[in-house]
Amino acid sequence: MHGEVRDRHGHPVLDAGPARVDDGRPPKTWGKITGIVTGPAGPLPGAVVRITTSGAHYTVITDASGHYRLWVDARNPLQVICADDGDQSQMATVGIRRGATTTLNFTLQKV
């Protein structure tokens, strides 16, 4: 699920591609969550990051460098679950601010 997805207003909300950097301007009420998912051997491409806001659920797949990013309406808090086959999943709760970038990295361990 690499690439760009747009919301019902035509704004980009998902960009997990390695060469894309936030093309377009999100609404002023949105914030960005981003991070890197790593494991014992380094970055984890293809890891699943599930982000739940008060109004929506998103699934992002990390790119070849283990990066993920998502612009969302700044409704707080966000529940974020990160998982990859053969690794212990992790969950975190994080707040984001309008117009700001929040970084949330995960380091997964083998089960």
Rank of each mutant, 00 (worst) to 15 (best):
I51Y: 10
I51W: 06
I51K: 08
I51S: 09
T52P: 00
T52G: 13
T53V: 05
T53Y: 03
T53R: 09
T53Q: 09
S54H: 08
G55C: 02
G55S: 14
A56Q: 12
A56P: 08
A56M: 08
A56W: 03
Y58N: 11
Y58T: 08
Y58F: 15
T59P: 09
T59D: 11
V60D: 09
V60I: 15
V60Q: 13
V60F: 05
V60P: 11
I61Q: 15
I61P: 02
I61C: 04
I61S: 13
T62V: 00
D63W: 07
D63S: 11
D63Y: 09
D63V: 07
D63H: 12
A64M: 13
S65E: 10
S65T: 13
G66H: 03
G66R: 05
G66N: 06
H67A: 14
H67C: 04
H67V: 07
Y68V: 02
Y68D: 02
Y68K: 09
R69S: 12
L70N: 08
L70W: 05
W71P: 10
W71H: 11
W71D: 10
W71N: 12
W71I: 00
V72I: 07
V72P: 03
V72D: 03
V72Q: 03
V72R: 04
D73W: 06
D73V: 14
A74C: 06
A74W: 03
A74N: 08
R75D: 04
R75M: 05
N76I: 00
N76M: 01
P77K: 06
L78N: 06
Q79S: 13
V80W: 08
V80I: 15
V80A: 07
I81T: 14
I81H: 14
I81C: 10
I81M: 13
C82A: 14
C82L: 03
C82W: 04
A83N: 07
A83W: 06
A83P: 04
A83M: 06
D84K: 14
D84N: 13
D84P: 01
D85W: 11
D85N: 14
D85K: 15
G86K: 14
G86C: 07
D87L: 15
D87I: 04
D87S: 07
D87E: 12
Q88V: 10
Q88G: 06
Q88E: 12
S89W: 12
S89K: 09
Q90K: 10
Q90H: 04
Q90F: 00
M91E: 15
A92G: 00
A92H: 08
A92C: 06
T93F: 12
T93Q: 13
V94D: 01
V94A: 02
V94H: 01
V94I: 10
G95I: 01
G95R: 14
G95K: 10
I96N: 02
I96M: 00
R97C: 05
R98T: 06
G99D: 00
G99N: 03
G99S: 03
G99F: 04
A100G: 00
A100L: 08
A100W: 11
A100D: 08
T101L: 00
T101F: 02
T102Q: 12
T102P: 07
T102H: 05
L104E: 09
L104Q: 14
N105F: 02
N105E: 01
N105W: 01
F106W: 03
F106C: 09
T107K: 13
T107S: 15
L108N: 06
L108S: 09
